[in-house]
Computed example of a mutant assay.
Amino acid sequence: MTLPTITEDTISLAAGDELILRFRTWEDYEALLARREDKAGLRIRYNGKTQEIRIISPLPRHANQVDLLADLVKAILRHEGKDWDAFTPITLKRIKQQGIEPDYCFFIDNRASILGKERIDLETDPPPDLAIEIDLTCSTKPEDYQAIAPVELWIYRQSQLSIYQFDSQQYRESEISRWFPGYDLKSLIPQYGDRGWEIGSSVALREFESVLRSL
């Protein structure tokens, strides 16, 4: 068994591990981000209210699921004739309040505001229109995004999709997506997410696109 290691030069976690550091400051969080260097696979979160830093090392299946769900979203956007810009990985910060790295995020209505930008600065730029989290080994709560405030947040866990919409104060769970109100996403996304794991992502995506054309 490999134990998590944090030194002056190294952050090392086995795939699937999650490490929580309590009573930490924003400066501690920024230092860890700088120390991470080339280990981009590690996700680091900061919560100013709880003063906790969470370091997560995703499983290989995690990347597969993220890629497929993002492709499903892009398929719907193409079907709807909507433009978008998407980012992964990306670090979103609200200074001294929250720092988080969604698995994928989309700018749809706000895409023009971030075109050509190397960094998203939430002091001047809008938050993502849609943020997606895939939970295999960790647990994401809507409160983890409260200060960042993407318009809509999806959390995919154990073949279930939860949709949350920000009402300017907090997240409220919704049965439908603001961006795709004409689709039963809580059925479609798990169906083709599981299908991709069983028969392969590209095959599942083609099937999904066929279904979209038939709607």
Rank of each mutant, 00 (worst) to 15 (best):
R213Q: 13
T88V: 04
D109W: 02
S202L: 10
I56R: 00
L33C: 14
W26K: 01
R119K: 15
N47A: 09
R35F: 02
T25N: 03
I148W: 13
C105E: 03
S12L: 11
F107I: 05
D103E: 14
K39Y: 02
W179M: 12
S210W: 11
G182I: 05
F87E: 06
L68S: 08
R206Q: 14
Q146N: 12
T88G: 08
L215H: 15
K82P: 00
K96Y: 13
E143V: 14
W197V: 14
I6E: 06
I155C: 13
A70L: 09
C105I: 12
R36G: 00
I44C: 09
L21P: 03
L77G: 09
T137A: 11
K39F: 00
P60E: 10
Q65C: 09
K49T: 07
L33T: 04
L13I: 09
E80Y: 10
I53K: 05
P150G: 02
S159T: 11
P127Q: 05
L33W: 00
I6M: 09
W154S: 02
W26F: 15
E27S: 10
F180I: 08
L130E: 11
P58L: 11
H62N: 08
S168P: 01
T5Y: 06
G81K: 04
K82H: 07
D121R: 09
I148V: 15
G116L: 09
K141N: 10
R206I: 04
L136C: 04
R111H: 06
H79L: 07
K186Y: 09
Y164A: 06
I95M: 04
G48D: 05
Q191V: 06
I120R: 05
Y156L: 04
Q65S: 12
D71V: 06
R172H: 15
I148N: 07
L77R: 10
D109H: 15
L130R: 08
P60A: 06
E175K: 03
M1C: 11
S201A: 15
S159R: 07
I134D: 01
A70E: 15
G116V: 08
Q169L: 03
L212Y: 01
R24I: 02
K141G: 08
L212I: 03
I90F: 01
D144N: 08
I53E: 09
I148T: 14
Q65W: 06
P4Y: 06
E207R: 01
A131R: 02
R78F: 13
Q170H: 09
T50R: 15
E101P: 05
G16F: 05
K49Y: 10
L130W: 11
E175C: 07
P126T: 04
S139A: 06
N64R: 13
Q170D: 14
F106K: 10
S113V: 02
D83F: 07
I132E: 03
L92H: 09
Q169V: 06
G48K: 08
D83C: 00
V66Y: 00
E133V: 09
P150I: 05
R213A: 14
R35P: 01
E80Q: 15
I11G: 03
K39G: 00
V73S: 07
A70Q: 15
E133P: 02
K74N: 11
A131Y: 00
E18M: 03
R45N: 11
S139G: 06
G116S: 05
L21H: 01
A70F: 13
R157W: 00
D71A: 15
A86I: 04
